[in-house]
Design a protein around this nucleic acid. Structure first.
Lengths: 308, 308
DNA sequence: ACCATTAATGCACCAAAGACATCAATAGAC
DNA sequence: GTCTATTGATGTCTTTGGTGCATTAATGGT
């Protein structure tokens, strides 16, 4: 025989109003039903809580002791209910996402700005990690989801493509290649190429895509981050092949980009999340915001939305 | 739509065991019933709490946040339940009673001793007040009940007679009246009588009972407490008319008592309590103990139990 | 003494929750 | 790759418990 919240609430109401009839009315209940509810509670507790006359109701000694406890219980229930609803409705909470630097710089600021305006009480923990580390963060559960590039499919990871972007050549405006309409990968072998480290996701992608070429480009400089390589291009040390989105802006004072073809190498950016692990409502909202932004072409430089 | 304790408990069990089947078994419930219970809770809260696969169960982000709150809620319910049961079963608690000094000295010690042996955790607050003040304490609710003398019936007071005792004459063994078999009230006018103050219940009772006498005794000394008057008798200052129970003991080294007749004035001692106010279980037990003691003739000096 | 009001009770009814049987999905064994 | 066993969800019927209506008993006020 279990005692329940409704019984406690009934007791409180009767105790406050000192009347079964009034309390029943207040609880949208018939008076007999309320009588029985109280009766049941008393039988569960093993002691009367209310001293009833046919004319009036008052608390018994035990009832008087129980009253404050009961009130606190109901209050805590209400509080917990409110709390969880707020959590569910994104009025409070926190999301953690892991994304690659490109996304952190070019995708997310606008999305975060809008999301934060709409859900001002959701804190955002943004882990800007390399493609590998970001995937690890999602896998370990440290991040609820991530923005990453499509790579070898891990069995526990679901990838939702968002945008496909080509690799482009970046060079200084005064570089010989700057005036070419487009450049083939083979042509690059004649120039000093700035590449990223062997463990980079981009590097592995390129190595894989270009493996069939006879004239494979060889990297003259090797750095760890794309932003560094851009800096070196800026300094006139060479040229670089980078995803178009990692370019700071269309109108850069020194840098120009041109398509890299034969082959056209693209990378797919998208959302990664663990299979079988529901997102928090807050994260769900974030993804919604993200998709909305992307739908209205907020991401310049990509080759547009893809369908899948 | 109300959410209830059972649902919270169900959620906790599933979260702990990470299995609907195991939790259902533990709750003595069928697995489908448990599924529905959780489902309902989730629909009330408006958010999923558990991420179910056909093979495993885990907490959602919201569920993880809710879990500790839920646990605390259930714990507090359990605690409150335990508490109130303990109160009802007299394992803890306190009773307050107001009694006249006679009762405090001669009725209660034995009763309290037995009661305390049986219910060692009930604290007893004993207000030893005058008849008037004691009645006031009961009326105000400060005392749950009292032991008092029968007086003008207050409408809110119920009086349960316990014992009737006569007034007796107390004198020193060397006093002229000491050898009389009995003494009439009229005879007292020739002796120095020690009485109590005008507001004493005993005094009012006597004044009332003796109002028809032509030879009314007049008090030579007036004190406030019967015990004081006994002391004065002991000192040889006079004699006193006191209720028999207020006599310290049958075999007092100095004092002797003898019946006071014409008329035989009796006072009725009994329990007083407020009408329409239930006693706490602890107090109920106390009254039981009290009645048991009195039934087996534990009160010497009275003229025995009376029936009403 | 009567009336009005209050809580309790008898009874018929209905809704919510439960059990049973079954289905769909999936991890693990081979 | 296929099959099996196990897990949670769902459909359906049953049952229990709670509810409302009508009525009763008790009591304070007139």
């Amino acid at each position: 025989m279990n005692y329940e919240l409704q019984q406690i609430q009934a007791f409180l109401k009767v105790a406050e109003l000192e009347s079964f009839q009034a309390a029943a009315q207040s609880l949208n209940l018939s008076q007999p039903a309320l009588s029985r509810r109280i009766k049941k509670l008393e039988s569960i507790l093993g002691t009367p809580l209310l001293a009833r006359t046919t004319r009036s109701v008052s608390l018994t000694t035990v009832g008087r002791d129980f009253f404050p406890q009961a009130k606190r219980l109901v209050d805590e229930f209400d509080h917990a209910l409110f709390n969880i609803r707020a959590l569910a409705e994104n009025r409070i909470g926190q999301i953690t996402l892991a994304c690659i630097p490109t996304a952190a710089f070019y995708f997310l600021p606008a999305v975060i700005r809008e999301y934060n305006a709409r859900y001002p009480n959701i804190r955002i923990r943004l882990l800007d990690l390399s493609a590998n580390d970001g995937l690890g963060a999602v896998l370990s559960g440290e991040a609820e989801f991530g923005i990453n590039m499509l790579s070898g499919h891990h069995p526990d990871i679901v990838f939702t493509p968002l945008v496909v972007e080509p690799f482009v050549l970046v060079c200084r405006h005064d570089h010989p290649l700057a005036t070419h309409g487009s450049v083939t990968w083979s042509e690059l072998s004649e120039h000093k190429l700035i590449g990223v480290g062997k463990m980079s996701g981009n590097r592995m992608l390129l190595d894989h895509e270009l493996s069939s070429l006879t004239q494979r480009p060889s990297w003259f400089y090797e750095v760890q981050h794309l932003s560094t390589s851009l800096g070196m291009v800026e300094a006139g040390l060479g040229v670089a092949a980078v995803p178009r989105l990692s370019m700071p802006d269309q109108e850069h004072p020194l840098l120009v980009q041109c398509p890299l073809i034969e082959p056209l190498v693209k990378r797919t950016l998208g959302m990664v999340r663990r299979r079988d692990s529901a997102l928090s409502p807050a994260a769900e909202r974030f993804v919604e915001t993200l998709l909305k932004h992307w739908d209205k072409g907020g991401i310049e430089g990509g080759i547009g939305p893809i369908n899948l």
